[in-house]
Nucleic acid binder design. Structure first.
Lengths: 248, 248
DNA sequence: GAGGGCGGTTGACCCTGATCAACGGTCCCT
DNA sequence: AGGGACCGTTGATCAGGGTCAACCGCCCTC
């Protein structure tokens, strides 16, 4: 796949050689059509930890894909607090909810040094008719997004602290794995503070809960380095049956 | 608007004369094009309280709009419990998340005797090219759906019982009002059980919380009949600033 | 109209997780 | 190396809401 039988310029090579190709937008595109898509994709310069990719209310020009690093989507509350409503890992698409009114609904902050690709809405829509599967692909991403929200809603609804944390870790692990990373041992991109916020808990509770899972030898923990020692017991702690799907 | 200068058959008159027209799919359609849309809309027979409109996993043929009554969208858990992830009032669209893979992700249950209109996905997509605004319209509905999830996530994240109940009522009222109903006095379509489930609380807590709001003369309550006596105090209870938007 | 089921309310008690507080380790900066 | 900020952990206490239980009123059926 790395050998080229055509004169590919660096632009056209972007997607074709990207490790995330099969998970990303191009998944709906035939190999020979790929260069056409690649023309409308732009790489961003790296974004530092803690800095905003975009702010809610700003005009939105396109959709983003995480190339490396990770982002959190947050809703700012009137009292100054923030509520994290989404976490985006490499290969995941975000910002789609701005497609309708061309305006961001959320703030997006890099959780670490990160990079994205962006695709312009206008250009994306302009090629919908040429790539009918692409329209479907985008719809699919949106509905996937909705489904993910539903899952999180299940997590937040009347579940204990252990269940929330365990479920979160299982999903996080699964998402990493589906993206070609190691799902058993990883660096959490979220701080305890962000984790607590996302799970609707308090920072001390998260710390204690993780501590407990560590004591039970279900996890190995060193700050943000997590290693899952027993998926079986972690699933138990999460309150999901063995074999039951954990996400979506 | 009720006078007709063209020979409208009963089919074509459906949307043009529907009280929900401006909130529904036809909002993106010019008046003269409306008959074309109406051709692909089908009215369902009434659905009894408690019966399923569709089940998760079933093949999905289209999207639904509540004509009258209301529905809940639920996610069935492995242990038999259900989690309510959405409530749909008249004029609201649901089932869009099945568009991508032509399969329902959720179960949908009528909360009372209800009726829907349905629009076939295939037919909807087939007229996308003729009505470019319609594609945008559908995208808009999806992203609105996502935004609504985000709001609910804010509601569920580290908020007290009173805040949850008050916020829910404010939003419910607002949705009714935007649909042309009276927003100050209404019959809640959800049982206390469903309400508790949706808000991530216990049924007794919901009952007590509503009771407290009643004692403070913020609400008048008779079972499911709710009358909001003071929006100002209800907003206080919900923890939102006066003037701050309550939904989305 | 007696009986039973269902939905909702109220009371008493208890437990999970929030809150307040102090401490330890790591990183960064000079 | 010292100082300080930040992140995470741990302990002690407290309260919001979960849990268990009884009860009430409405509706339905027979």
């Amino acid at each position: 796949m790395t050998s080229c039988d055509h004169k590919a310029d660096t632009l056209a090579r972007r997607c074709a050689h990207c490790s995330l190709r099969r998970l990303c937008l191009p998944a709906g595109i035939d190999r020979e059509d790929l260069p056409n898509l690649e023309k409308i994709v732009r790489k961003s310069p790296p974004i530092d930890e803690g800095s905003f990719l975009f702010h809610a209310g700003e005009e939105s020009h396109g959709v983003y894909v995480v190339r490396f690093g990770s982002f959190k989507s947050i809703r700012m509350l009137a009292n100054g607090d923030e509520q994290i409503v989404g976490v985006h890992l490499p290969g995941e698409v975000f910002g789609l909810d701005g497609m309708a009114n061309r305006r961001f609904n959320l703030d997006s902050v890099a959780l670490e040094k990160s990079g994205v690709c962006s695709v312009s809405f206008d250009q994306l829509e302009s090629i919908f008719d040429r790539f009918p599967t692409l329209n479907r692909q985008v719809m699919g991403m949106m509905s996937r997004e909705v489904s993910e929200r539903h899952s999180h809603q299940v997590l937040m609804g009347r579940r204990s602290a252990v269940e929330r944390v365990a479920l979160f870790l299982l999903r996080y692990s699964e998402r990493l794995e589906s993206r070609g990373f190691v799902g058993t041992s990883f660096a959490l991109s979220l701080s305890r503070q962000d984790l607590a916020n996302y799970l609707g808990l308090q920072i001390e509770t998260v710390s204690r809960t993780i501590g407990k899972l560590k004591e039970q030898n279900i996890l190995e923990v060193d700050r943000r380095l997590i290693s899952i020692e027993s998926f079986e017991h972690l699933r138990d702690a999460a309150g999901v049956d063995q074999g039951e799907a954990v996400s979506f």
